[in-house]
């Protein structure tokens, strides 16, 4: 095993073009897996000194670019995120615990793609895109096409996540992330990320993604599209939760049974939507 610490994105990409090369971001997952003898990369490419990956910036149109090396704590406190984009900071604040939030990064977490992790549903609900860079150059992959299967992403060998790009959230949308876990900071039994906009009683923006209920976060854009323009009462919410539940493929594990997840996640979606509507109606 060799260890390299490049200081530019170009040098990082070059260092990754070797068999068995792996990015070392915050280490929160990779080093834990190395300690457990589950992985042994031939070359560790530390991203520590690549300054460009550590930044987050808000563009004039409200787009927010979050560098892959932004730590969970930084994202939890990110003042550049506004309105519906706050779904991401709410998710970041619920990851693990303070020491792990000081280490773990958004790029590292997404590249590992744990099905019960907090960022995947939040990014899917925020309509985020991944900016990936490799030997062939840059490409952009929407969150919905990035998380592919259990622990599998659209990342190709030799490619790294450069940043996560959140489009501007429509004004007056709210973002929320709710997670059910055995104890605070554990991986989710199930989680719900949503971005909601209401104009009076009419729903004008709706994005709901459910985490920990399948290999990738689950979202039903088809049903969301049908619900735009109408009210969001029990019947409409029921349509969405039924459609989401059809797409669930949860695991049985130490946190909860698959059956429990199927039952609890729709109720969490309902509750989150009711609470978000309440928040909107209380906002002057």
């Amino acid at each position: 095993m060799e260890f390299v610490r490049p200081d530019s994105i170009e040098a990082t990409v070059a260092a990754l073009q070797a068999d068995g090369a792996a990015c070392l971001a915050g280490g929160a997952t990779l080093v834990a897996m190395m300690n457990a003898d589950l992985v042994a990369p031939h070359r560790l490419v530390s991203l520590r000194d690549v300054a460009a990956l550590r930044e987050a910036a808000r563009q004039p149109d409200g787009t927010v670019v979050v560098g892959a090396m932004r730590r969970h704590r930084e994202t939890a406190e990110e003042t550049d995120l506004r309105d519906g984009q706050l779904v991401l900071s709410e998710a970041a604040a619920q990851i693990a615990n303070p020491p792990v939030r000081n280490m773990g990064t958004i790029g590292g977490s997404c590249a590992f793609a744990d099905p019960a992790a907090d960022y995947p549903p939040a990014l899917l609900a925020a309509d985020a895109r991944f900016s990936l860079i490799g030997a062939e150059g840059r490409r952009t992959v929407p969150a919905g096409d990035f998380f592919l299967d259990w622990y599998e992403t659209a990342l190709e060998p030799g490619e790294l996540i450069e940043s996560v790009v959140l489009p501007p959230a429509p004004a007056r949308t709210v973002g929320s992330y709710t997670k059910l876990a055995r104890v605070a900071g554990d991986f989710a039994i199930a989680s719900v990320a949503l971005v909601l906009g209401m104009d009076g009683r009419a729903c004008i923006h709706l994005a709901v993604a459910v985490g920990a209920c399948g290999p990738a976060p689950v979202r039903r854009r088809d049903v969301e599209a049908d619900l735009i323009g109408g009210g969001l009462g029990d019947t409409e919410i029921r349509r969405l939760t039924d459609a989401l539940a059809e797409a669930f493929d949860p695991v049985d594990d130490v946190r909860a049974s698959a059956d429990y997840r199927r039952r609890v996640a729709p109720r969490m979606v309902r509750q989150a939507l009711v609470e978000a509507q309440q928040r909107i109606s209380e906002t002057p």
Binding site: G26, G27, V31, A32, N35, S46, P99, M103
Partner: peptide
Amino acid sequence: QGVCGACTVTIDGEPVRSCLSLALN
């Protein structure tokens, strides 16, 4: 594995897991 916290130290003032920090980094 970074779960228990018994190895916590501060790096640049912030508490982190020393078991998940590679020495060369």
